[in-house]
Simulated assay, not measured.
Amino acid sequence: MPRLSSWVAIGDSFTEGLSDLAPDGTYVGWADRLAQLLADRDPDFQYANLALRGKMLREIVDEQIPIVEQVRPDLVTICGGGNDLIVPGSDVDELADVFEQAVIALRQTGCEVVVFTGPDPRKQPVVRRVRGKVAIYNGHLRAIADRHGAKIVDLWAMPVLVDIRAWSDDRLHFSPEGHRRIALRTAEVLGLPVIEDWREPWPPVAPTPWIRSRQADLAWTRAHLLPWVRRQLRGKSMGDGLVPKRPELQPLADQSTGNGHAATA
């Protein structure tokens, strides 16, 4: 693996780390877990995470890429477009064009670029309705990565992420275990040695009775779906008024973080 002394992670809630909570109430997520692995190998390693929940792809491009262009890290990871795809009427091809221009701009900085496909949402209520759009967008992302020499972490090709236990109660963000497995997969793509395997099967679980599943669906609708719909109707975002949790490249030890949640190297 080439030495990576600096990394800037950009994107939305997936990269910010929702819903992987640290004991102090902050979010950890796959990116912080992977950053800990890299810091364990190199005490001078520097990391920034500019991702914010609710960001649309154009916002990521306009607000976060200029920072990458300024600091020119060794590595940049980008995941974006998921929030756009959920919006009715969004155009997958236009979205892919925006993403490709983002990758071109990032590659021009000379950094290594890693992109992420969307996971398969076939077991997720509401989101599974855009499964076809996600699949088409993923096809674009794979082609973009191939054209521009970017690495790709194919979340759709991770069957362990289809299991409901890989997702949090809001059914939109990954659970801590989901984030852990994604960190391991990303480390693998980067050529970073790990001693755990993201492919490890989930332990068997008894089927959930039908009535309990319907009760859970109702509770989820009240707690998560309806608030999301209200925000969309008002043009609001979960990230309004928030700032990135790691806005500057710094050694990991110098930053406030929920450590102790790293994947194992």
Rank of each mutant, 00 (worst) to 15 (best):
M56V: 02
P66D: 06
I164V: 14
V130T: 12
H173Q: 02
D24Y: 09
A135Q: 12
T109D: 06
S90W: 07
T221E: 04
S256T: 14
M56N: 01
P247I: 10
V98H: 12
P203G: 01
V87R: 15
T77H: 11
P125C: 08
G178M: 05
L225T: 03
L37K: 06
A157P: 02
Q101W: 04
R3E: 14
R107Q: 12
D163W: 00
T221A: 12
T208N: 01
V68D: 06
V243K: 13
W198F: 15
E59M: 05
P204C: 07
E112P: 00
T186C: 14
G258S: 07
H148W: 13
S5T: 14
K55H: 12
T117W: 04
G11R: 02
V92D: 03
R72M: 00
P121N: 06
A51Y: 05
L155Y: 06
A96C: 02
Q46Y: 01
R33T: 08
Y27I: 09
K133E: 13
N259R: 15
Q215L: 13
A48C: 08
P207V: 12
G258K: 09
A183C: 08
T117G: 09
R212I: 08
P119Q: 08
W210A: 14
R180N: 10
V194F: 10
M56S: 09
L184E: 11
W7D: 04
M158R: 08
P251S: 06
G54C: 07
L50G: 00
L225S: 01
V153C: 11
Q101H: 11
D146N: 07
V103E: 04
V127L: 15
T208M: 15
P203A: 14
V243I: 10
L50D: 03
D169Q: 14
E248R: 04
Q250A: 15
D44R: 14
D97P: 01
A96P: 10
T109G: 08
S175P: 02
P193T: 03
S5P: 04
P43I: 01
P247Q: 01
P66E: 07
D12N: 15
V113G: 02
T257C: 03
F174G: 02
A265G: 11
R147M: 04
E188S: 12
R131H: 11
V8Y: 06
W156F: 13
E177H: 11
E188L: 05
L233K: 10
P244Q: 00
I65N: 04
P88V: 06
W210R: 13
V153H: 04
V115I: 15
Q232F: 09
R199E: 08
A96F: 01
R199M: 08
N49R: 07
L226Y: 05
P227D: 07
Q250I: 00
D32E: 13
G235S: 09
D32M: 03
P43E: 09
D44K: 09
A262Q: 12
S256N: 09
I60N: 08
V113K: 08
G25A: 10
P119M: 10
V76S: 10
S6R: 02
Y47C: 01
L226T: 07
A187T: 10
H224S: 09
R230A: 12
L52T: 03
P227H: 02
V98S: 09
D154M: 03
S168W: 07
P203H: 07
G89I: 01
G260I: 06
A262R: 14
P88G: 10
E100A: 05
T186M: 14
A253G: 03
V98A: 14
G110H: 05
